[in-house]
Computed example of a mutant assay.
Amino acid sequence: MRKSYKFRLYPTKEQGIILTKTLDVCRYIYNEFLADRRNAYDRCNRGLNILDQINQVKYLEFNIPVQSQVKQDVIRRLGKSFDAFFRRCKSGEIPGYPRFKSKGRYNSFTYPQSGFLIEGTKLKLSKIGTIKLKQHRGIEGKIKTCTIKRELDQWYAVFSADLGKCPIKVEPITSIGIDVGLNSCVTLSNGEQFDSPEFYRKSEKSLTVQQKRLSRKKKGSENRNRQKSKVVKVHRKIRNQRLDFNHKLSRILVDRFDRIVFEDLNINNMVKNHHLAKSISDVAWGQLIQMTKYKAEETGKFVELVNPYNTSQMCSGCGTLVKKSLAVRTHKCPECGLELDRDHNAAINILNLCTVGTTGRACGVMDNSSGNEAGST
Protein backbone atom coordinates (compact mmCIF):
# COMPACT_ATOMS: atom_id res chain seq x y z
CA MET A 1 0.00 0.00 0.00
CA ARG A 2 1.42 3.38 -1.06
CA LYS A 3 0.70 6.85 0.31
CA SER A 4 1.97 10.23 -0.87
CA TYR A 5 2.99 13.19 1.27
CA LYS A 6 3.29 16.67 -0.20
CA PHE A 7 5.38 19.35 1.51
CA ARG A 8 6.26 22.93 0.54
CA LEU A 9 9.87 23.74 -0.37
CA TYR A 10 11.47 27.14 0.15
CA PRO A 11 14.57 27.29 -2.09
CA THR A 12 16.86 30.29 -2.18
CA LYS A 13 17.07 32.32 -5.38
CA GLU A 14 20.17 30.39 -6.49
CA GLN A 15 18.57 27.05 -5.66
CA GLY A 16 15.45 28.06 -7.58
CA ILE A 17 17.61 28.68 -10.66
CA ILE A 18 19.24 25.24 -10.30
CA LEU A 19 15.84 23.54 -9.90
CA THR A 20 14.54 25.32 -13.00
CA LYS A 21 17.61 24.32 -15.02
CA THR A 22 17.20 20.70 -13.85
CA LEU A 23 13.63 20.78 -15.15
CA ASP A 24 14.89 22.16 -18.47
CA VAL A 25 17.40 19.29 -18.75
CA CYS A 26 14.70 16.71 -18.02
CA ARG A 27 12.39 18.31 -20.57
CA TYR A 28 15.17 18.28 -23.16
CA ILE A 29 15.81 14.57 -22.53
CA TYR A 30 12.09 13.81 -22.82
CA ASN A 31 11.73 15.65 -26.13
CA GLU A 32 14.96 14.25 -27.62
CA PHE A 33 14.11 10.65 -26.87
CA LEU A 34 10.52 11.13 -27.97
CA ALA A 35 11.92 12.31 -31.31
CA ASP A 36 14.24 9.25 -31.38
CA ARG A 37 11.28 6.90 -30.93
CA ARG A 38 9.31 8.64 -33.64
CA ASN A 39 12.23 8.68 -36.09
CA ALA A 40 13.13 5.03 -35.41
CA TYR A 41 9.60 3.99 -36.30
CA ASP A 42 9.27 6.29 -39.33
CA ARG A 43 12.66 5.43 -40.87
CA CYS A 44 13.37 1.89 -39.68
CA ASN A 45 9.87 0.62 -38.83
CA ARG A 46 11.02 -0.46 -35.38
CA GLY A 47 10.29 0.76 -31.88
CA LEU A 48 12.74 1.62 -29.13
CA ASN A 49 12.18 0.31 -25.63
CA ILE A 50 13.04 1.83 -22.26
CA LEU A 51 16.22 -0.21 -21.81
CA ASP A 52 17.60 0.89 -25.19
CA GLN A 53 17.17 4.55 -24.36
CA ILE A 54 18.43 4.29 -20.76
CA ASN A 55 21.70 2.95 -22.14
CA GLN A 56 21.94 6.03 -24.38
CA VAL A 57 21.04 8.75 -21.87
CA LYS A 58 24.13 8.16 -19.73
CA TYR A 59 26.32 9.53 -22.53
CA LEU A 60 24.57 12.92 -22.62
CA GLU A 61 26.37 15.84 -20.96
CA PHE A 62 24.79 19.09 -19.81
CA ASN A 63 25.85 22.45 -18.41
CA ILE A 64 24.62 21.50 -14.94
CA PRO A 65 25.04 18.09 -13.26
CA VAL A 66 21.87 16.00 -12.99
CA GLN A 67 21.73 12.78 -10.98
CA SER A 68 21.80 9.70 -13.23
CA GLN A 69 18.63 8.14 -11.78
CA VAL A 70 16.71 11.36 -12.38
CA LYS A 71 17.64 11.20 -16.09
CA GLN A 72 16.72 7.51 -16.25
CA ASP A 73 13.34 8.23 -14.67
CA VAL A 74 12.58 10.67 -17.52
CA ILE A 75 12.98 7.75 -19.95
CA ARG A 76 10.65 5.61 -17.84
CA ARG A 77 8.15 8.45 -17.81
CA LEU A 78 8.30 8.57 -21.61
CA GLY A 79 7.84 4.80 -21.70
CA LYS A 80 4.69 5.08 -19.60
CA SER A 81 3.32 7.65 -22.05
CA PHE A 82 3.80 5.21 -24.92
CA ASP A 83 2.32 2.32 -22.91
CA ALA A 84 -0.78 4.43 -22.30
CA PHE A 85 -0.89 5.37 -25.99
CA PHE A 86 -0.81 1.71 -27.12
CA ARG A 87 -3.39 0.75 -24.47
CA ARG A 88 -5.79 3.40 -25.77
CA CYS A 89 -5.22 2.22 -29.33
CA LYS A 90 -6.10 -1.38 -28.41
CA SER A 91 -9.19 -0.39 -26.41
CA GLY A 92 -10.59 1.80 -29.20
CA GLU A 93 -10.21 5.09 -27.31
CA ILE A 94 -8.84 8.30 -28.80
CA PRO A 95 -5.11 7.39 -28.85
CA GLY A 96 -3.41 10.75 -28.19
CA TYR A 97 0.19 10.29 -29.34
CA PRO A 98 2.75 11.53 -26.74
CA ARG A 99 3.47 15.22 -27.26
CA PHE A 100 6.63 17.25 -27.09
CA LYS A 101 6.76 19.25 -23.87
CA SER A 102 6.98 23.03 -24.08
CA LYS A 103 8.55 25.09 -21.32
CA GLY A 104 5.36 25.39 -19.28
CA ARG A 105 4.29 21.77 -19.63
CA TYR A 106 7.06 19.91 -17.84
CA ASN A 107 7.01 20.71 -14.13
CA SER A 108 8.43 17.78 -12.14
CA PHE A 109 11.34 15.37 -11.86
CA THR A 110 11.79 12.32 -9.64
CA TYR A 111 14.48 10.65 -7.58
CA PRO A 112 13.23 7.05 -7.92
CA GLN A 113 15.46 5.34 -5.34
CA SER A 114 18.15 7.50 -3.76
CA GLY A 115 19.72 10.93 -3.95
CA PHE A 116 17.45 12.59 -1.37
CA LEU A 117 17.48 12.77 2.42
CA ILE A 118 15.38 14.60 5.01
CA GLU A 119 17.59 16.21 7.63
CA GLY A 120 15.41 17.94 10.23
CA THR A 121 13.80 20.92 8.47
CA LYS A 122 15.95 20.49 5.35
CA LEU A 123 15.76 18.30 2.27
CA LYS A 124 19.11 17.30 0.81
CA LEU A 125 19.00 16.65 -2.94
CA SER A 126 21.85 15.15 -4.92
CA LYS A 127 23.47 17.63 -7.39
CA ILE A 128 21.24 20.44 -6.09
CA GLY A 129 21.91 21.03 -2.40
CA THR A 130 20.01 21.42 0.87
CA ILE A 131 16.62 23.15 0.65
CA LYS A 132 14.34 24.34 3.44
CA LEU A 133 11.37 21.97 3.86
CA LYS A 134 8.07 22.69 5.63
CA GLN A 135 7.19 19.22 6.93
CA HIS A 136 3.82 19.82 8.59
CA ARG A 137 3.19 16.15 9.49
CA GLY A 138 5.10 12.93 9.98
CA ILE A 139 5.68 10.36 7.25
CA GLU A 140 4.51 6.81 7.88
CA GLY A 141 6.20 3.82 6.26
CA LYS A 142 9.33 3.68 4.15
CA ILE A 143 9.97 6.46 1.65
CA LYS A 144 10.45 5.04 -1.85
CA THR A 145 10.56 8.04 -4.19
CA CYS A 146 10.88 11.81 -4.02
CA THR A 147 9.33 14.01 -6.70
CA ILE A 148 10.20 17.71 -6.94
CA LYS A 149 7.28 19.63 -8.41
CA ARG A 150 6.92 23.22 -9.56
CA GLU A 151 3.56 24.97 -9.37
CA LEU A 152 4.04 28.38 -10.98
CA ASP A 153 6.25 30.19 -8.43
CA GLN A 154 6.07 27.52 -5.71
CA TRP A 155 8.05 24.32 -5.23
CA TYR A 156 6.92 21.11 -3.54
CA ALA A 157 8.43 17.77 -2.54
CA VAL A 158 6.15 14.76 -2.93
CA PHE A 159 7.26 11.61 -1.09
CA SER A 160 5.77 8.23 -1.95
CA ALA A 161 5.91 5.91 1.08
CA ASP A 162 5.27 2.19 1.31
CA LEU A 163 2.98 1.43 4.27
CA GLY A 164 3.21 -2.34 3.90
CA LYS A 165 0.11 -4.52 3.79
CA CYS A 166 -3.37 -3.05 3.78
CA PRO A 167 -5.04 -3.02 7.22
CA ILE A 168 -7.47 -5.81 8.06
CA LYS A 169 -11.02 -4.92 7.03
CA VAL A 170 -13.30 -4.09 9.95
CA GLU A 171 -16.75 -5.62 10.26
CA PRO A 172 -19.02 -2.74 9.18
CA ILE A 173 -21.34 -1.62 11.96
CA THR A 174 -22.42 1.83 10.77
CA SER A 175 -23.41 2.37 7.13
CA ILE A 176 -24.46 5.51 5.29
CA GLY A 177 -25.82 6.24 1.82
CA ILE A 178 -24.70 9.45 0.15
CA ASP A 179 -26.39 11.36 -2.64
CA VAL A 180 -24.15 13.95 -4.29
CA GLY A 181 -25.86 17.03 -5.63
CA LEU A 182 -25.56 20.67 -6.64
CA ASN A 183 -27.71 22.50 -4.09
CA SER A 184 -26.09 20.47 -1.31
CA CYS A 185 -22.68 18.96 -1.96
CA VAL A 186 -23.73 15.70 -0.27
CA THR A 187 -26.90 14.53 1.44
CA LEU A 188 -26.67 11.59 3.85
CA SER A 189 -29.31 8.92 4.33
CA ASN A 190 -29.72 10.08 7.94
CA GLY A 191 -30.88 13.49 6.70
CA GLU A 192 -27.68 15.48 7.19
CA GLN A 193 -26.59 17.83 4.43
CA PHE A 194 -23.28 19.54 3.63
CA ASP A 195 -23.69 22.63 1.51
CA SER A 196 -21.58 23.14 -1.58
CA PRO A 197 -19.06 25.97 -1.01
CA GLU A 198 -19.05 26.95 -4.74
CA PHE A 199 -15.46 28.18 -4.73
CA TYR A 200 -15.35 28.69 -8.50
CA ARG A 201 -18.52 30.77 -8.65
CA LYS A 202 -17.34 32.97 -5.76
CA SER A 203 -14.06 33.64 -7.58
CA GLU A 204 -15.61 33.92 -11.04
CA LYS A 205 -15.76 37.72 -11.04
CA SER A 206 -12.08 38.04 -10.11
CA LEU A 207 -11.15 35.41 -12.68
CA THR A 208 -13.12 37.21 -15.40
CA VAL A 209 -11.26 40.47 -14.72
CA GLN A 210 -7.86 38.78 -14.91
CA GLN A 211 -8.75 36.87 -18.07
CA LYS A 212 -9.96 40.04 -19.81
CA ARG A 213 -6.69 41.74 -18.98
CA LEU A 214 -4.82 38.71 -20.35
CA SER A 215 -6.75 38.87 -23.64
CA ARG A 216 -5.57 42.46 -24.19
CA LYS A 217 -1.87 41.65 -23.81
CA LYS A 218 0.31 41.10 -26.87
CA LYS A 219 1.17 37.45 -27.42
CA GLY A 220 4.75 36.59 -26.55
CA SER A 221 5.30 39.73 -24.48
CA GLU A 222 6.54 39.83 -20.89
CA ASN A 223 3.36 41.65 -19.85
CA ARG A 224 1.31 38.73 -21.15
CA ASN A 225 3.46 36.22 -19.25
CA ARG A 226 3.04 38.18 -16.02
CA GLN A 227 -0.70 38.43 -16.53
CA LYS A 228 -0.90 34.72 -17.32
CA SER A 229 0.68 34.03 -13.92
CA LYS A 230 -2.06 36.07 -12.23
CA VAL A 231 -4.75 33.98 -13.94
CA VAL A 232 -3.02 30.77 -12.88
CA LYS A 233 -2.86 32.00 -9.28
CA VAL A 234 -6.63 32.52 -9.19
CA HIS A 235 -7.16 28.98 -10.50
CA ARG A 236 -4.64 27.65 -7.97
CA LYS A 237 -6.50 29.27 -5.10
CA ILE A 238 -9.79 27.72 -6.25
CA ARG A 239 -8.14 24.30 -6.59
CA ASN A 240 -6.57 24.50 -3.13
CA GLN A 241 -9.85 25.58 -1.53
CA ARG A 242 -11.66 22.68 -3.18
CA LEU A 243 -8.95 20.22 -2.11
CA ASP A 244 -9.12 21.45 1.48
CA PHE A 245 -12.92 21.13 1.61
CA ASN A 246 -12.99 17.63 0.13
CA HIS A 247 -10.15 16.44 2.38
CA LYS A 248 -12.04 17.59 5.47
CA LEU A 249 -15.41 16.25 4.32
CA SER A 250 -13.99 12.83 3.34
CA ARG A 251 -12.24 12.62 6.73
CA ILE A 252 -15.52 13.32 8.54
CA LEU A 253 -17.29 10.57 6.56
CA VAL A 254 -14.57 7.96 7.10
CA ASP A 255 -14.25 8.71 10.83
CA ARG A 256 -18.00 8.39 11.43
CA PHE A 257 -19.01 5.44 9.23
CA ASP A 258 -17.66 1.95 8.47
CA ARG A 259 -19.42 1.52 5.11
CA ILE A 260 -19.96 4.50 2.80
CA VAL A 261 -22.14 4.07 -0.29
CA PHE A 262 -22.03 6.40 -3.29
CA GLU A 263 -23.69 6.34 -6.70
CA ASP A 264 -21.52 5.01 -9.53
CA LEU A 265 -21.89 8.15 -11.66
CA ASN A 266 -20.43 8.66 -15.12
CA ILE A 267 -19.28 12.21 -14.45
CA ASN A 268 -17.56 12.61 -17.83
CA ASN A 269 -20.90 12.21 -19.59
CA MET A 270 -22.74 14.42 -17.09
CA VAL A 271 -20.50 17.44 -17.72
CA LYS A 272 -21.48 17.33 -21.41
CA ASN A 273 -24.69 19.05 -20.32
CA HIS A 274 -23.65 22.67 -20.79
CA HIS A 275 -26.36 23.87 -18.38
CA LEU A 276 -24.86 21.94 -15.46
CA ALA A 277 -21.21 21.43 -16.42
CA LYS A 278 -19.86 24.41 -14.45
CA SER A 279 -21.76 23.47 -11.28
CA ILE A 280 -20.76 19.79 -11.50
CA SER A 281 -17.09 20.69 -11.96
CA ASP A 282 -17.26 23.14 -9.07
CA VAL A 283 -18.43 20.54 -6.52
CA ALA A 284 -15.86 17.94 -7.74
CA TRP A 285 -17.80 14.75 -6.92
CA GLY A 286 -15.12 12.51 -8.40
CA GLN A 287 -12.42 14.05 -6.21
CA LEU A 288 -14.52 13.60 -3.08
CA ILE A 289 -15.25 9.94 -3.86
CA GLN A 290 -11.60 9.23 -4.63
CA MET A 291 -10.42 10.84 -1.38
CA THR A 292 -13.00 8.91 0.61
CA LYS A 293 -11.84 5.66 -1.01
CA TYR A 294 -8.20 5.97 -0.07
CA LYS A 295 -8.93 7.22 3.45
CA ALA A 296 -11.26 4.27 3.97
CA GLU A 297 -8.61 1.89 2.63
CA GLU A 298 -6.10 3.16 5.21
CA THR A 299 -8.48 2.37 8.07
CA GLY A 300 -9.87 -0.94 6.81
CA LYS A 301 -13.30 0.49 6.03
CA PHE A 302 -15.43 0.21 2.89
CA VAL A 303 -16.51 2.51 0.07
CA GLU A 304 -19.08 0.98 -2.27
CA LEU A 305 -20.64 2.15 -5.52
CA VAL A 306 -24.18 1.28 -6.62
CA ASN A 307 -26.13 1.74 -9.84
CA PRO A 308 -27.68 5.25 -9.78
CA TYR A 309 -30.63 4.24 -11.99
CA ASN A 310 -33.92 5.66 -10.60
CA THR A 311 -32.50 6.44 -7.15
CA SER A 312 -34.09 9.90 -7.33
CA GLN A 313 -37.41 8.68 -8.74
CA MET A 314 -38.01 5.66 -6.52
CA CYS A 315 -39.86 6.06 -3.22
CA SER A 316 -37.64 4.90 -0.36
CA GLY A 317 -40.74 3.89 1.63
CA CYS A 318 -42.64 1.64 -0.76
CA GLY A 319 -40.53 1.40 -3.92
CA THR A 320 -43.03 3.17 -6.20
CA LEU A 321 -41.57 5.16 -9.09
CA VAL A 322 -42.57 8.82 -8.71
CA LYS A 323 -41.45 10.71 -11.81
CA LYS A 324 -40.26 14.27 -11.21
CA SER A 325 -38.05 16.78 -12.97
CA LEU A 326 -34.85 18.29 -11.55
CA ALA A 327 -36.82 21.41 -10.60
CA VAL A 328 -38.95 19.41 -8.12
CA ARG A 329 -36.96 19.30 -4.88
CA THR A 330 -39.49 17.48 -2.65
CA HIS A 331 -40.42 13.81 -2.97
CA LYS A 332 -44.16 13.13 -2.44
CA CYS A 333 -45.33 9.54 -2.83
CA PRO A 334 -49.02 9.13 -3.81
CA GLU A 335 -49.00 5.48 -2.64
CA CYS A 336 -47.59 5.57 0.90
CA GLY A 337 -47.76 9.32 1.53
CA LEU A 338 -44.03 9.67 2.23
CA GLU A 339 -42.88 13.29 1.91
CA LEU A 340 -39.24 14.35 2.31
CA ASP A 341 -36.40 16.14 0.54
CA ARG A 342 -35.61 14.70 -2.88
CA ASP A 343 -31.89 14.22 -2.11
CA HIS A 344 -32.62 12.61 1.28
CA ASN A 345 -34.95 10.11 -0.43
CA ALA A 346 -32.23 9.33 -3.01
CA ALA A 347 -29.62 8.80 -0.28
CA ILE A 348 -31.86 6.27 1.47
CA ASN A 349 -32.37 4.43 -1.83
CA ILE A 350 -28.60 4.34 -2.39
CA LEU A 351 -28.07 2.74 1.03
CA ASN A 352 -30.93 0.29 0.44
CA LEU A 353 -29.47 -0.78 -2.91
CA CYS A 354 -26.19 -1.72 -1.25
CA THR A 355 -27.99 -3.55 1.57
CA VAL A 356 -29.97 -5.57 -0.98
CA GLY A 357 -26.78 -6.30 -2.93
CA THR A 358 -24.99 -7.77 0.10
CA THR A 359 -27.86 -10.21 0.71
CA GLY A 360 -27.70 -11.87 -2.65
CA ARG A 361 -28.43 -9.46 -5.51
CA ALA A 362 -25.76 -7.66 -7.53
CA CYS A 363 -24.20 -4.68 -5.81
CA GLY A 364 -21.40 -2.64 -7.39
CA VAL A 365 -18.67 -2.73 -4.75
CA MET A 366 -15.35 -0.97 -5.06
CA ASP A 367 -12.62 -3.37 -4.05
CA ASN A 368 -10.36 -1.17 -1.89
CA SER A 369 -7.31 -3.33 -2.40
CA SER A 370 -7.28 -3.29 -6.19
CA GLY A 371 -9.46 -0.35 -7.20
CA ASN A 372 -11.60 -2.58 -9.45
CA GLU A 373 -15.30 -3.18 -9.20
CA ALA A 374 -16.24 -6.57 -7.84
CA GLY A 375 -19.53 -8.32 -7.13
CA SER A 376 -20.54 -8.46 -3.48
CA THR A 377 -22.00 -11.67 -2.14
Rank of each mutant, 00 (worst) to 15 (best):
R216S: 05
S196A: 15
N240A: 09
D255Q: 15
V271A: 13
P95L: 08
E61I: 10
D367C: 11
L117E: 14
D36T: 00
Y294I: 07
V328P: 00
V74P: 06
V74I: 13
N240V: 03
C333I: 00
V283I: 15
S108H: 04
R88F: 10
C26R: 03
K127Q: 12
K21M: 07
G364P: 01
R87G: 03
D36P: 02
F86K: 11
H136R: 12
F262S: 07
L326H: 00
I50N: 15
L51F: 12
N307K: 04
P334H: 02
I17R: 09
V306E: 03
K332E: 03
L60K: 15
R137W: 10
R236I: 00
F199Q: 03
D162E: 15
D162L: 11
F159W: 13
S196T: 05
R27C: 03
N183S: 10
I143S: 13
R38Q: 10
L321D: 01
T359S: 08
A35T: 07
S81L: 12
I350V: 04
T121C: 10
V254S: 06
Q56T: 11
G177P: 08
N310W: 01
E339G: 00
A327V: 02
L338M: 02
G138D: 14
I54M: 15
F302Q: 12
C336V: 01
I50D: 11
P172W: 12
I17Y: 02
W285H: 09
Y309N: 09
T121A: 13
Q211W: 04
L321S: 01
R242M: 06
R342C: 01
I17L: 04
D343M: 02
G138E: 15
V365C: 02
Q290I: 02
V271P: 10
P172H: 12
S81M: 12
K205S: 08
V232K: 11
V322K: 03
M314A: 05
I176S: 08
K217W: 05
V209R: 15
A84H: 11
T311E: 01
Q241E: 13
D73S: 14
T145L: 14
A362C: 01
R236K: 06
L326S: 00
L305Q: 06
K142Q: 15
K142I: 14
A346H: 01
L23V: 04
M1T: 05
V328I: 05
D36N: 07
V74K: 06
Q193W: 01
S91P: 03
L351V: 00
E222V: 06
R88N: 12
